[in-house]
Computed example of a mutant assay.
Amino acid sequence: MEGREQMDKSKVTIGVLGLQGAINEHLQQIESLGLKGIIVKRADQLSDIDGLILPGGESTTMRKLIDHYGFLEPLKEFSNSRKPILGTCAGMVLVAKDISGTTDSHLHLMDIVVKRNAFGRQKESFEAELNVKGLNHPFRAVFIRAPYIESVSDQVEVLAQYNGKIVAAKQNNILVSSFHPELTKDTRFLELFLQIVNEQQAV
């Protein structure tokens, strides 16, 4: 992609929040593109990275660990400084301003309402071909206990839907997906995130 070609890979470091979830799979995909990836286990590491991935996992557990290790305010500051964030599955739940059916939302970073486990439990996991805005060909998406976005504000760009449900979206420096792009060999969704990183570095 054009944004990726313009990027000086030697100057880009992408972090993966390493508290819980699909950490290594994201790291492997980052490194497959020739970029430096690090596992972020301390809040002070956020100053060393150009973009952050909040991986899939269990959002309630991840929130407890975020609180325990002092990440809550540093993550908000990271986003407020316009540093790019990619939230996948549980990561999408973490960044949402509202979670359907509860007042217990987490980081309040993105103007979306998310419904947790909306496509069913583990046994209802599935794959689907998605048309994703910004990608020339369908993306084979892996859904595992996946949430979806019930509603968005006017500030949010919808990138993909499945059966009429929003499963990928973007708002300024934040990109989210219901699915797990790291569980495929297709790096194009990650490259969409890297475009945001590239644009932010150009500012």
Results as ranks from 00 to 15, higher is better:
residue 37 G to L: 05
residue 39 I to V: 15
residue 39 I to G: 04
residue 41 K to T: 15
residue 42 R to G: 05
residue 43 A to W: 02
residue 44 D to H: 13
residue 45 Q to T: 05
residue 45 Q to D: 10
residue 46 L to A: 04
residue 47 S to W: 04
residue 48 D to C: 10
residue 49 I to A: 01
residue 49 I to F: 01
residue 49 I to Q: 05
residue 50 D to S: 09
residue 55 P to M: 10
residue 55 P to V: 11
residue 58 E to A: 01
residue 58 E to P: 03
residue 59 S to N: 09
residue 61 T to G: 07
residue 61 T to D: 10
residue 62 M to F: 00
residue 66 I to F: 00
residue 68 H to E: 13
residue 68 H to K: 15
residue 69 Y to H: 15
residue 70 G to Q: 07
residue 72 L to M: 09
residue 72 L to T: 11
residue 73 E to N: 05
residue 76 K to W: 04
residue 76 K to F: 04
residue 76 K to E: 08
residue 79 S to Y: 02
residue 80 N to W: 09
residue 80 N to Q: 13
residue 81 S to P: 05
residue 82 R to E: 13
residue 83 K to D: 09
residue 86 L to Q: 01
residue 88 T to H: 08
residue 88 T to G: 07
residue 89 C to H: 09
residue 89 C to W: 08
residue 90 A to Q: 04
residue 93 V to F: 01
residue 94 L to P: 07
residue 95 V to R: 05
residue 95 V to P: 02
residue 101 G to T: 06
residue 104 D to T: 12
residue 104 D to L: 13
residue 105 S to T: 10
residue 108 H to W: 11
residue 109 L to S: 02
residue 110 M to N: 10
residue 110 M to H: 07
residue 112 I to N: 03
residue 114 V to N: 08
residue 115 K to V: 08
residue 116 R to M: 07
residue 119 F to G: 01
residue 119 F to T: 02
residue 119 F to C: 03
residue 120 G to R: 12
residue 121 R to Q: 12
residue 121 R to D: 05
residue 122 Q to S: 08
residue 123 K to H: 12
residue 124 E to G: 10
residue 127 E to D: 11
residue 127 E to Y: 06
residue 127 E to P: 06
residue 129 E to W: 13
residue 135 L to T: 00
residue 136 N to A: 13
residue 137 H to Q: 13
residue 140 R to C: 11
residue 140 R to K: 14
residue 140 R to A: 12
residue 140 R to G: 11
residue 141 A to Q: 11
residue 144 I to Q: 00
residue 145 R to L: 07
residue 146 A to M: 12
residue 146 A to F: 09
